[in-house]
Design a protein around this nucleic acid. Sequence first.
DNA 1: CGGCATACCTGCAAGC
DNA 2: TGCTTGCAGGTATGCC
Length: 286
Amino acid sequence: MPELPEVETVVKGLRPKMENCTFSRVEQRRKNLRIPFPRDFVERLENSTITSLWRRAKYILAELDSGEVLLMHLGMSGRFTIDETPPEQSGASPGRHDHVIFHMNNGAVITYTDPRRFGLMTLIDATRFHNHRLLKNIGIEPLGNELSGTFLAQCFAGKKTSLKAALLDQKNIAGLGNIYVCEALYRSCLSPLRRAATLARPGARAVERADGLAIAIRNVLSDAIAAGGSSLKDYVRTNGELGYFQHRFDVYDREGEECRRKTCSGRIKRIVQSGRSSFYCPRCQR
DNA sequence: CGGCATACCTGCAAGC
DNA sequence: TGCTTGCAGGTATGCC
């Protein structure tokens, strides 16, 4: 499920068990995920210490004292689970989709599970990670200071594509996925079909529209992060699972149901845009 | 270059 | 029950 809020929640959950901790043992149970694991992946991790753990877009980055950065992505179905009892003591054996197991020097066993294997793990040089092919073209962080109506208006100026596609494009804004784009557009009363450039088109409403969208994006994401934190209780479930939380969506997966806006009598519609579902209220989103 | 379709892989729910 | 189909929250690539 991972979009920005889920990845943020995973990072917060992993931090107490990984930051300033050392990899005692690493199990790599297959040779690739979406991309191959790097050469000597296990050897390069073992006995190195994580100096800091953070998120950029939907990537999780662990800076190591070896001078490398461990770069991880959850893809569509990746998740981490933290166990305090080593499997050899609890008697549990790894599942078919448990691809990487980190044994930390604090006793935590952190398992990466990913049925669809759209996730990835790789190691990159700390001095050059900004220029790494996976990170260099990524857009602004939506929870940082750069996101504003002015930014969106400029960024989308001249774009013929839809607002939906423009918001999904990680080169513009990093971390939004299908769900939160649908939710942000709903909150700002903008249609996913609207041409991105019209956000900036001069006119009385243009500033309002762009500012409204910027605020909606920020609020949707921070609400989801807050919900994740509270429903996971310090970001870790009792079963150790991280990053999966129930969140009540206004439009996502609500095809045919009533619009939640009190002043609106519309019904949520599902359409397909560039091969993905968009959910919106055709009555109040314009 | 923009915009779209496609591919990667597995699991699950719905339909027959 | 069992088979087939379509769909899933991400991203890179290739084609026009």
